[in-house]
Nucleic acid binder design. Structure first.
Lengths: 332, 332
DNA sequence: GTGAAAGCGCTAACAG
DNA sequence: CTGTTAGCGCTTTCAC
C-alpha cells in the first residue's frame, strides 16, 4: 500500500507537505503542491480513510436500518437516502433486520463501535435502555417511530388511514373492511385508527369483525383477505394497510373470480411503483417515499454538523386514483 | 468516549492487559481478566473499530454494488448476502449506482480508500483500466459479468432465455416475441441469444422484428409491449427478459383488454416474489436469488481469508409455472 | 502474568 | 513555505 511516506520520499518532501498538498490546503507553494499531486498520482496513492477517520473522528459513513428491504417501499427510500449521501460523499451502511429490540441491540452496538457518523432508523420502538446505545450518535427515526429524543421524518399515518377509508366512503361504500398490519407495529395501529375514525365520522360502524390482520406483505394480504371474505362475504370495499397487502388481496380476488373493482373496491397505502402495474392499477394513498429518504438524510446531516433541536418532519401524502375503486350508487 | 486507557486506569492495569482481557486472549490471569471485563462493562466501554481496523488492516466490512435496488431482484439478493454477512459479523456497505464505468470508477475508488475487505459487484463490464482500482481488493462479480480475473456467481443467462422460450414453444406457440433488456447489458444479450437459439432449434424464425427493447423495468415492458403489439398483432406469446418487464407487459394487456393467457402467453425470468401475485400469476424462469447472494458472499469470504483460484459458480434455475401460459393446440 | 513501547496511516499543531 | 512531532485508539512484540 502506498502511503504518505512513500509520496514524501519520492518527492523529497515531508509528510506534512504531502498531506497539505493532497488535501488542497494552504501552506504549500503552488508548484510543489502540483508536483506532489502528480507524484502521488504516478504512485497510485490512495489515502487510507481508516487512518483519516481515526484522527478526524468522522467516518463519512451513515447507517440505514430497515425492517425488510424486500418490501418495495424501502428500496425507494434507500434511493432517496443514497441520493443525498452521494452528494455529500457519504457511504451508506445498510442493515436489514427485524425492528425488535433484541435484534436491533447488537446491530446498533456494532454501528456505534464502527463509529458511523449517523443512523437512520426505521423502527417503532426503542426499549428505554437501548437509547443509550446510540445516544452519542446523531439519529433520525424514519417512517415509523417517535421518541421525543430523536428527530423524526414520516407521514401522518393516522391521516393516511383516514384518507384511504374516506375515499371509499365517498365512493358510496358502507361495509368497508380493513386488512391491518402487524398489531405490534405503531404504524399499523395508526392506520387502523384512521380507518376507525373515518367510519365513525361517517356514522358507520367500525365493526372489529371487519378487520383481519396481515403482515404488510403479499402473503399476509392474501390470507387475511381469504379469512375476511369467508367470514364477511358482503363487504364491498377493503382498505389494506399497505400496498403489498393490497396486492396480495388483489391476487386473492383473481383466484376467486371476484372482480375488482366491480365486486369489491380496494385501496392501499404507500404508492410503491408497482401499484401502478397491478391489474387493476391500485388506488392508494401515496407517500413521497424518496422525499422521505431525502428529508431524513438531510436532517441527519444537519444534526451531524452540529447539535440541532429535535425536529419532526411530516410530509404530505397524495391520493393516487388507480382503477381499483368503484362507486356504489352514492357520490363519486 | 471511553478508551482502553480509561479501563486501564480504572483497573490499575496496563492497556496491554486490558486489550488482552477484552479480546479473550491468553496472557492474563483469569481473575484479572474477569475484573477488567467487568470494569469495562461498568464504564460502558465499546472498542473503537476504526482504530482496530487501522492496525488489523481489516474493516470487517464488505460492499455490495447494485445497479438498481428498486428492482425487486436486488433486495432479495441483498437478503442472501446479509444473511452470511451477519453470520460472520460483517457490515454491508450498499451502493446503488448505474453500472457504467464513469459512475462506477469513483465509487470503487471510494471503497478502496475505505479499505473494505471485499466487493460484490453487479456489473457487466469493467473497462480494462478500472480493474486496477480494486485489484487489491477481493471481488466477486455477481449475476452479471465475467472477467477471468475475478470470481463469478450467477446463472446461465443464455440457458434461461432458452428455457423460457422453449416452454412457450412446447405449449405450441410459433410466433414468440421478445421484450429484451437494454442492448448494452451482457445479461440482456445472453437472454436474447437463448431466445434465438430456442427458436432456431425448433425450426422457427427468430425474426428481429419480434424484438422490442425494454429497460428491465415495468415501464419499459409496458412501452415495448405496446410497440410490439402495434406492429405484430398476431404474436401469441411473449418472452420478457425479466419479471419486471413481464409485469409491465401484463399491465399493458390489461389496459388493452387482451387476455393473458387466452390471447397471449407470457414468460419472464427472475422469479421475484411478486411474480406470484400478479394477475395471472407469472410463469417465469426463477433464479435462486438468495442462494446467489449467499454463494457470492461465501465465495468472497473465502477469497478474503486467503488467495483462491478464480472460481465461477453457476446455480440452476427453475421453471415456475404460473398461469400466464396457455397451450395452443400443440403439446402441453 | 504484566507492562513499556512501537507503530498502523494520517492530520494538525508548533517550530523554523 | 516547510519540517518535526504528537497523537487518534488499538494491537502486538519484547522485556521483565
Amino acid at each position: 500500500m502506498v502511503t504518505v511516506y512513500d509520496v514524501a520520499q519520492a518527492s523529497g518532501l515531508s509528510i506534512a507537505s504531502v498531506s497539505r498538498a493532497l488535501n488542497g490546503q494552504s501552506g504549500v507553494s503552488k508548484t510543489t503542491a502540483e508536483r506532489i499531486v502528480r507524484i502521488a498520482a504516478e504512485l497510485g496513492y490512495q489515502p487510507n480513510e481508516v487512518a483519516r477517520s481515526l484522527v478526524a473522528k468522522s467516518t463519512q459513513t451513515i447507517a440505514l436500518l430497515v425492517p425488510d428491504i424486500t418490501n418495495p417501499f424501502f428500496p425507494e427510500l434507500v434511493k432517496g437516502v443514497q441520493s443525498v449521501a452521494d452528494e455529500n460523499d457519504l457511504l451508506l451502511l445498510l442493515v436489514d433486520a427485524p425492528a425488535d429490540a433484541e435484534t436491533l441491540r447488537p446491530r446498533l452496538a456494532a454501528l456505534r463501535r464502527k463509529q458511523v457518523d449517523g443512523i437512520l432508523l426505521v423502527a417503532s420502538e426503542l426499549g428505554g435502555d437501548m437509547e443509550e446505545l446510540f445516544d452519542e450518535t446523531p439519529t433520525v427515526l424514519l417512517d415509523r417511530g417517535h421518541s421525543g429524543r430523536h428527530a423524526t421524518v414520516g407521514i401522518d399515518q393516522e391521516a393516511a388511514g383516514f384518507a384511504a377509508t374516506r375515499h371509499l366512503i365517498q365512493a358510496g361504500h358502507t361495509r368497508i373492511a380493513h386488512i391491518a398490519g402487524p398489531a405490534d407495529l405503531a404504524v399499523a395501529q395508526l392506520r387502523r385508527a384512521g380507518w376507525e375514525r373515518a367510519l365513525r365520522e361517517a356514522g358507520l360502524d367500525a365493526d372489529p369483525s371487519l378487520i383481519e390482520v396481515g403482515d404488510f406483505e403479499e402473503e399476509g394480504g392474501h390470507r387475511a383477505g381469504a379469512r375476511l371474505l369467508d367470514r364477511e362475504p358482503d363487504v364491498t370495499a377493503v382498505f389494506a394497510a399497505n400496498d403489498l397487502s393490497a396486492i396480495g388481496f388483489l391476487a386473492l380476488c383473481a383466484d376467486r373470480g371476484i372482480s375488482v373493482p366491480d365486486d369489491v373496491s380496494v385501496v392501499g397505502i404507500d404508492g410503491i411503483e408497482l401499484a401502478r402495474y397491478t391489474t387493476p392499477a391500485l388506488t392508494t394513498i401515496a407517500q413521497p417515499i424518496r422525499e422521505l429518504g431525502v428529508a431524513a438524510c438531510r436532517s441527519l446531516l444537519a444534526q451531524i454538523e452540529g447539535p440541532r433541536p429535535v425536529e419532526d418532519i411530516t410530509l404530505p401524502t397524495t391520493l393516487i386514483a388507480g382503477a381499483s375503486v368503484r362507486g356504489r350508487g352514492g357520490a363519486s
